[in-house]
Design a protein around this nucleic acid. Structure first.
Length: 806
RNA sequence: GCGGGUAUGGCGGAAUUGGCAGACGCGCAGGAUUUAGGUUCCUGUGGCUAUACCGUGUGGGUUCAAGUCCCACUACCCGCACCA
């Protein structure tokens, strides 16, 4: 009979549906293993062929763990709030909830079609009120602990989504999602104080097993820098606080720069002789998009404040003050002291505006020609009174201490990370459970009133005035103050897409709990996630946000671990045939439904894992898919009919089987799925040379089971093995059975390969040498030569260094 | 500019501690089966002026031995980007 993958896959999926062999059991005595993949956003296009890469990888890992006796939690869910669904709903005049339901049904069908061993009883959906009740609950806890606050500030505004964005969502000055320009807009926004956790988010990376590039990317994003805050006086008497990482260069500060948005400027405007010019610069800076601001960074611009000066606190010198957009309002204090001799940006600005350049660190080139920025021992302080003669490194603590004693400065750590802008002016998100009362201010909704459901609205259209569509729902908006009972209004912004995904892995532990986000017992049993695989694009978004929320939940005693994820790995993208990104416009999108139809789910699973290094991007190839199908056909031919005999390895294949067991097992743990499959292919090739015994086939089917579970199960049944392949015990290997009695070694003469020799395994050097020298080719080469040096590497090679006899 | 990564046949990619470079797959060539095509099976497949020699982005070096270690480069990809 032919390998009828469609029939077989249907059959076993029905068995799994009925018998639920992949159900996780909270509290089981077995050791637990929690493997997690990033839950998909259920888009209208259905599953992309990129999805099966991480999904299949973790399915393989967890299936192996299950066979090794672990109680495995491998859950799935849907991150279903978000803009594409909302936009689709607007365009087609349907409710986003209806669209979501449809899309989830389609995703579910596709995921089942691929044979994943999910625990389907634990599915979560972030748009389910029973789920987002707890998302809102966490928000209330953040609010009660002072970590959620509402403030007016310049925020990123996507001109197309008509919605604010978090810093993490702005990529190269455009919206991460739609690519439209992002501008600055003053808006009142809910913020989460992720900055309060900045240090811990860096420190605790030391305790987790994340791949290095994830750690560095998070560290860079958080961007810790140490230095000092120094207070300069202005001639108006105002204090100007600046942050600097180079307090040692204070004597070289020859001017100051404020960001165009700095609060002091407004105060000073009436005093300024060039107030109009300053206002015009402010207006220009505000209207620039982030894109323009960064693109124009080659040329520094600015305006000197005419009528106000700063005073350098170390020497009392009056220095000019500029405003310029190269100083960012949102970093440090929004003001800097400029040391053109030792900072590239200040140097460039000083050259353009004719500011004085004073060298205070010697050891570089002429500071009139270029800034000298070395921060190590190479520079020696000059022109700096009591710092003269010190290295930069030694000068920093001296000046910092001096500043502290004089009361004009202090050591300070700054982070690039900013607080998380948490409001979105859109409909399809979790309502923020807050109420504004003119008497009481912001009042949190009582927990008993959760979930605060999304109301039905007539229109989901975002508005040009920057208000959420919810703001039009006066019935819903107008409410009573939970505190004083007076008239009040609900918050009409919703939460960002990242809210629901910041804690979903906790809900999986106890998904139907009506009284808590998850029970203490479930949290204690399953925490932390043992292995989380996901995309690099989430490193400074979801991964960072969820670590922050988890640390907060740990602080208030809700979760038992400091970190949510013990191990984090990442996969490369699947590109189209030819190596370009898959996209509708290029017409190179591969639909998993089509592949499954033509070749079967097992082939797709196998191919997507065989395609290349898991961490590297890989291009789709239809031909290579056929190769994987051929491999399964070959296995089918071997095992289709029952092989009788004892369940032991055959003599001829024993070593190969044991080596394959070792290789496949180790490669799965190391995510080297491609070589694991290559090892199985090699084993099957061996079986074509030496007919496999019943035991040989059994081992092969067990190794294959995590990768291609349907065919493995079918052949397992046809062979009449007990139970299921997928729940059988993972095979063991015996190191002593892995090697044959003889080994082929390389024979080099003067370092060049000249022959090979077959020698007994682990034979001593003399035996090996005598065999080698007896070889005709070697013997001939030895004529008239003497051996100067002999190198023997056990079981690997012999190298003879020869020279002519004198 | 800063941080991270990659570079190996016609292609995707393999190669513990330095120890037979090119596993496995695709493609290609030849053969068998087949009325034919397809499928399947077997054999071969880095280059070349072929007992030799040359081959892992480039140029040096260490070593009996280098894809692997050291020094100096180049190209490409990803992330961040005026962060004081």
């Amino acid at each position: 009979m032919k390998y009828d993958f469609a029939e077989i896959e249907k059959k076993w999926q029905a068995v799994w549906e009925r018998e639920k062999p992949f159900r996780a059991e909270t509290g089981s005595d077995k050791p637990k293993f929690y493997g997690l993949i990033e839950f998909p956003y259920p888009s209208g296009q259905g599953l992309h062929v990129g999805h099966p890469r991480p999904f299949t990888a973790m399915d393989i890992v967890t299936r192996k763990k299950r066979m090794e006796g672990y109680n495995v939690l491998f859950p799935i869910g849907f991150d279903a709030f978000g803009l594409p669904t909302e936009n689709y709903a607007i365009k087609n005049h349907v409710h986003p909830a209806a669209v979501t339901k449809q899309n989830i049904a389609n995703f579910t069908r596709q995921l089942k079609m691929l044979g994943y061993g999910f625990d389907w009883d634990r599915v979560v959906d972030t748009t389910d009120p029973e789920y987002y009740k707890w998302t809102q609950w966490i928000f209330l806890q953040l609010y009660k602990h002072g970590l959620a606050y509402k403030t007016t500030m310049p925020v990123n505004w996507c001109t197309s989504c008509k919605c604010v964005l978090a810093n993490e969502e702005v990529v190269e000055g455009v919206c991460e999602r739609c690519g439209a320009p992002v501008i600055r807009k003053e808006k009142s926004q809910w913020m989460l104080k992720i900055t309060e956790y900045a240090q811990r988010l860096i420190d605790d990376l030391d305790d987790v097993d994340f791949i290095e590039r994830v750690k560095t990317q998070q560290r860079n994003w958080i961007g810790r820098s140490t230095g000092a805050e120094v207070t300069f006086k202005a001639t108006t008497g105002d204090d100007i606080v600046v942050f600097t990482t180079r307090p040692d260069t204070l004597f070289g500060a020859t001017y100051m720069v404020l960001s165009p948005e700095h609060a002091l400027i407004k105060k000073w405007l009436p005093l300024l002789k060039n107030a109009d010019e300053v206002r015009e610069y402010q207006r220009l800076a505000a209207s620039k998009s982030d894109m323009e601001r960064t693109e124009l960074n080659k040329e520094k611009t600015g305006v000197k404040l005419s009528g106000v000066c700063g005073v350098n606190p170390v020497n009392g010198r009056e220095i000019p003050i500029f405003i310029s957009d190269y100083v960012l309002a949102t970093y440090g204090t929004g003001a800097i002291m400029a040391v053109p001799a030792h900072d590239d940006r200040d140097w460039e600005f000083a050259k353009k505006f004719g500011c004085e350049i004073i060298e205070v660190v010697s050891g570089g080139e002429d500071v009139q020609k270029a800034a000298f920025t070395a921060k190590d021992e190479t520079g020696i302080m000059v022109n700096s009174e009591f710092l003269n003669g010190l290295t930069v490194k030694d000068a920093i603590p001296v000046i910092t201490k001096w500043l502290e004693e004089k009361g004009i400065g202090k050591a300070k750590v700054n982070f690039k990370l900013r607080d998380w802008v948490f409001s979105r002016q859109r409909y399809w998100g979790e309502p923020i459970p807050m109420v504004w009362c003119d008497k009481c201010g912001w009042v949190p909704l009582p927990e008993s009133e959760l979930p605060l459901r999304l109301p039905e609205v007539d229109s989901y259209e975002p508005t040009d005035d920057g208000e959420s569509p919810l703001s039009k729902m006066t019935d819903w908006v107008n409410t009573t103050c939970p505190h004083c009972g007076g008239p009040a209004r609900r918050e009409t912004d919703t939460m960002p897409q990242w809210a629901g995904s910041s804690w979903y892995f906790l809900r999986y532990m106890d998904p139907h709990n009506p009284d808590a986000l998850a029970s203490k017992e479930a949290l204690a049993y399953w925490s932390p996630v043992d292995w989380y695989n996901g995309g690099m694009e989430h490193t400074t978004l979801h991964l960072l946000y969820s670590r922050f929320w988890h640390k907060f939940l740990y602080d208030i005693g809700v979760v038992p671990t400091k970190e949510p994820y013990q191990k984090r790995t990442s996969h490369g993208m699947i590109l189209g045939e030819g190596g370009e990104k898959m996209s509708k416009s290029r017409g190179n999108v591969v639909n998993p439904d089509d592949v499954v139809k033509s070749y079967g789910a097992d082939t797709l699973r196998l191919y997507i894992m065989f395609i290349g290094d898991f961490e590297q991007a890989a291009a789709w190839s239809d031909n290579a898919v056929k190769g994987c199908k051929r491999f399964l056909d070959r296995i089918w031919n071997l095992a289709e009919t029952r092989i009788d005999g004892p369940e032991a390895c055959s003599h001829a294949n024993e070593a190969a089987v044991h080596r394959a067991i070792k290789k496949v097992g180790e490669d799965i743990e190391a995510m080297k799925f491609n070589t694991a499959i290559a090892a199985m292919m090699g084993l099957v090739n061996d079986f074509y040379d030496n007919a496999p015994s019943r035991g040989d086939i059994k081992a092969l089917l067990q190794l294959l089971s995590p990768f291609a579970p349907h065919i493995a199960e079918e052949l397992w049944e046809r062979q009449g093995f007990e139970g299921y392949a997928s729940t059988s015990a993972w095979p063991r290997y015996d190191e002593s059975k892995m090697t044959e009695s003889e080994k082929e070694i390389a024979v080099q003469l003067n370092g060049k390969l000249r022959a090979t020799a077959t020698v007994p395994v682990d034979a001593d050097d003399e035996t090996v040498l005598s065999i080698v020298k007896a070889q005709e080719k070697v013997a001939r080469a030895l004529e008239g030569m003497e051996i100067v040096k002999t190198i023997v590497i056990k079981n690997k090679l012999v190298n003879l260094i020869l020279r002519p006899v004198k």
